[in-house]
Design a protein around this nucleic acid. Structure first.
Lengths: 110, 110
DNA sequence: TAAGCTATAGCGCAATGCATAGTAGCTAGT
DNA sequence: ACTAGCTACTATGCATTGCGCTATAGCTTA
């Protein structure tokens, strides 16, 4: 994969993770699949799990362990109040930067 | 500045630089000011010049030196054919990832 | 000669995506 | 019982980038 792709994803994957969790709790593997549904966002475990670990360490999400019907116990993550605030902040900035990008690419077709 | 802000900018600043250069050549300081016009994209020299150096090294832009009426000589950068292709690629991916982010944040207000 | 603006450049750090590899629980087939 | 295959999570290490900080040099004005 071209290196600039990885760079462009930085931060945005975390934003998407928080976005999914906003709809309710989810476990790691589930997040992996949800995120993979979007074009241009195919993702691997080695990307998602570190993000979850960081978010948990920062108090943005909380973990709940529950048995799985088809494998090892699942770790369900859900947003904390702190996490909701962070999501709000990030969305605000996302809006700004999205407008910035589009400002410099008016009238262009990819 | 919060660390996630820097992460979210990664790659997108370069995309904006290419976007500005698509309208015609520009020198570093000029780019700095153009980019600063956008909300959420205030930028410093230590960010722009390394980007220009990288882009030049990769053959995406070419440099032309010309005297300035008000200071040291300016280095004018302009897109090469390679750079135009890269910009196209990046815009395609940008479209994908923008849709991805919005997919996971439908119905939300920042 | 000193200040102040313009314009460019280099060093070093922190953070992240991701390739690679490994661990462990559960089910089904032979 | 053994193997294969799926689910779910973890660990290591690298490359890349944004950016704070600092330095340099040309030009004008006082």
């Amino acid at each position: 994969m071209r290196s600039w792709v990885a760079q462009m994803r930085k931060g945005l994957i975390e934003l998407c993770v928080l976005g999914v969790l906003r709809d309710g709790e989810a476990y790691g593997y589930q997040l992996l699949q949800r995120l993979g549904e979007a074009d241009g966002l195919s993702i691997s475990e080695s990307t998602v799990y570190p993000i979850l670990a960081r978010l948990a360490e920062d108090g943005m999400i909380k973990v709940r362990v529950a048995p799985s019907p088809t494998g090892p116990p699942r770790r369900y993550y859900r947003l904390t109040t702190l996490g909701q605030d962070r999501l709000k902040e990030m969305l605000t900035y996302w809006k700004d930067i999205r407008l910035a990008v589009e400002k410099f690419h008016k009238g262009e077709q990819a």
